[in-house]
């Protein structure tokens, strides 16, 4: 039993390590950007400790940089978090053996642990230990990276060092590998057109992200239906 747990922990560490480096890069970007919108070192790290959501945190600082208000940020984050409902539903069976610890493990339901754990559960069945180790590695990487990003960001001129470029470049690098299949590409192209129209109508439009996030996926659904019925 103990040997099996050790083996699970080792596997989790090996499989999580490359992603943890990517998450750290992403966390550094968040830390730098958070300092640019006047977060302190404490609040920058606190958001990583209590929220632990790369996309939500980066969206928050990006929206704040654009002058968005709390309501607008919250609505966008809720929309962005909708996928967690799916992740949770899909992972529930795999982490169920953890019983009372399930509520704690729920905190680790994000994109990367979902990808790793769903593959693991498919291979070996429910394995809450694996999920716990993977989520813990990403959590620690995320917090430390946010801290160091905030430290660096506070001392450097972001424009001079190109740190302001980290955010769009990070999202481009996250977006492009997922652009496979007509429905996804259709969603992305519609999002570009919609966002441009909304921004053209009112530059700095607070509703651009929310409306695009709500409407563009409908085009993806439409294309999916057409291609699957063809």
């Amino acid at each position: 039993m103990l040997h099996q747990k050790k083996s699970t922990v080792k596997t989790a560490c090996v499989e999580a390590f490359p992603l943890a480096i990517a998450i750290a890069a992403y966390g550094m970007s968040y830390g730098v950007l958070a300092m640019q919108v006047n977060f302190s070192l404490l609040t920058t790290v606190a958001m990583s400790v209590f929220v632990f959501s790369g996309s939500a945190q980066l969206v928050t600082v990006a929206m704040l940089a654009g002058g968005a208000g709390l309501t607008s940020v919250l609505l966008t984050v809720i929309l962005l978090n909708l996928r967690n409902l799916l992740y949770g539903a899909a992972l529930a069976e795999g982490i169920e053996p953890a019983k009372k610890w399930t509520r704690l493990l729920a905190f680790g339901v994000t994109d990367e642990p979902f990808v790793l754990a769903s593959a693991r559960f498919k291979k070996v069945g429910p394995d809450p230990t694996y999920f716990a180790v993977v989520a813990a590695i990403f959590y620690i990487a995320w917090i430390f990276a946010s801290f160091f990003g905030a430290l660096i960001g506070n001392q450097l001129d972001p424009q001079k060092w190109g740190l302001d470029l980290a955010f769009p470049v990070t999202f481009a690098a996250l977006l492009v590998p997922g652009l496979k299949g007509k429905p996804v590409i259709g969603t992305a192209l519609t999002a570009v057109i919609l966002a441009l129209c909304l921004e053209g109508f009112k530059p700095g439009n607070e509703l651009t992200i929310i409306l695009t996030g709500l409407l563009a996926p409908l085009v993806g659904l439409f294309i999916h239906r057409r291609t699957s019925h063809a």
Partner: peptide
């Protein structure tokens, strides 16, 4: 599944 793609794209445009 399509919501994150749409939101990330909108952020890039902005």
């Amino acid at each position: 599944n399509y919501v994150p793609i749409a939101i990330i794209t909108a952020l890039l445009v902005k």
